[in-house]
């Protein structure tokens, strides 16, 4: 167990170092950092001095190490466009993105799982066929198109919901939340649905195929033979065994939901990190791009790590060979 955790941790650190290397290379070699920080009229001497104080004359390895240390401390430097520390910008924007992502994934889970169970139990039912067709459309429609269609219907034609922004937000310390005001909740509805739809179809299809698999197994037949009610068999036995992979995949998807929030945020002008990243890409604001990359990588690595460790705790089969191959789940 101990060896497994250590190996898995080392692997995660290696991934983070690789990502930091990419971020560092971006920062150091795409455009000249000095030109991006100072104005046109700065003298050559001043530039040299700044170069020295920023340590840009040291060897690349030293610079990389300094970058890693700073990044680990959360210091991502200054944005070229806004002349503000990237860290404060990220912290300002993070609550909006996290609220949107978490609400979306919960929405996807609480609608997707029942739909999946239903389609697996009533495979040839009319409603099940409708669900399956909807899921095919959900996979084929690009996220931004769903957002635009929602805006057209509920924002422009029906005028029920606001089409941009977060509504009124309440500050709780450094965290701003839109979940406590009516306008905040109203503003959340359309972005959350847009972001959730793809995950929802994914979860629904996953639950359906897992359920179909489980319903064929011997222990389900045995449970039926024992005369248990349909309800007990379907939900007590079958669904319970389906949920392990479903929760794993949903957990792993949280990372990509945060990344896909880029699109939703820019459709609904949601003031989150994703929109900040898009603006950074358009403006070639390298420090912001690099910071976002590191942050997303951190989310992914941590989520992956937790899922792997949970798997190890839940599934005894992984423990037999001393945990050697557990990390590639």
């Amino acid at each position: 167990m101990f060896a497994f955790i250590i190996r898995r941790l080392l692997q995660s650190v290696l991934v983070m170092l690789t990502v930091a290397l990419i971020a560092f290379a971006l920062f150091r070699f795409v455009g000249d950092p000095i030109n991006n920080l100072v104005g046109q009229d700065t003298t050559l001497q001043d530039r040299q001095k700044l170069r020295e104080t920023l340590g840009l004359n040291d060897s690349v390895v030293v610079q990389y190490w300094r970058y890693v240390v700073n990044t680990a401390k959360g210091d991502f430097g200054y944005s070229y466009m806004h002349r503000r520390p990237v860290k404060t910008m990220l912290l300002e924007r993070m609550p909006a993105t996290l609220e949107l992502s978490i609400i979306s994934i919960l929405l996807a889970l609480f609608i997707g799982v029942p739909m999946g169970v239903y389609t697996s139990l009533r495979r040839d039912g009319f409603l099940a066929k409708i669900f399956m067709s909807i899921s095919l459309i959900g996979i084929s429609l690009p996220t931004f198109l769903i957002g635009i269609m929602l805006i057209l219907l509920f924002g422009v034609i029906l005028r029920w919901l606001p089409t941009f922004g977060r509504g009124e937000v309440v500050a709780l310390g450094t965290w701003t939340t839109g979940l406590l005001t009516v306008s905040g909740l109203k503003a959340l509805i359309m972005p959350a649905i847009t972001l959730a739809l793809f995950q929802m179809t994914l979860i629904m299809r996953l639950v359906r195929s897992e359920m179909l698999e489980v319903l064929r197994t011997d222990y389900i037949k045995f449970a039926r033979a024992r005369g248990l009610s349909n309800r007990a068999v379907n939900f007590g036995h079958a669904l319970k065994n389906t949920l392990v992979p479903v929760i794993t995949i949903t957990g792993l998807q949280l990372g990509s939901v945060i990344a896909f929030a880029i699109i939703t945020e820019s459709v609904f002008q949601w003031p989150g990190m994703g929109r900040m990243f898009i603006e950074a890409v358009a403006d070639v604001d390298i420090p912001v791009m690099a910071a976002y990359l590191c942050l997303i990588a951190l989310f992914f690595v941590v989520i992956n790590l937790i899922v792997d460790l949970l798997y190890y705790a839940v599934d005894p089969r992984l423990r037999v060979d001393g945990g050697g191959s557990g990390g590639h789940g």
């Binding site: 455009g31 896909f260 890409v281």
Partner: peptide, 22 residues
């Protein structure tokens, strides 16, 4: 493996941003 753990859209955005910088 490392690349697969990032969504394709993020990577494409990043490459595009780098190209803009270069």
């Amino acid at each position: 493996d490392i690349q697969l753990s990032f969504p394709a859209i993020l990577l494409a955005l990043l490459v595009d941003g780098v190209a803009r910088g270069l």
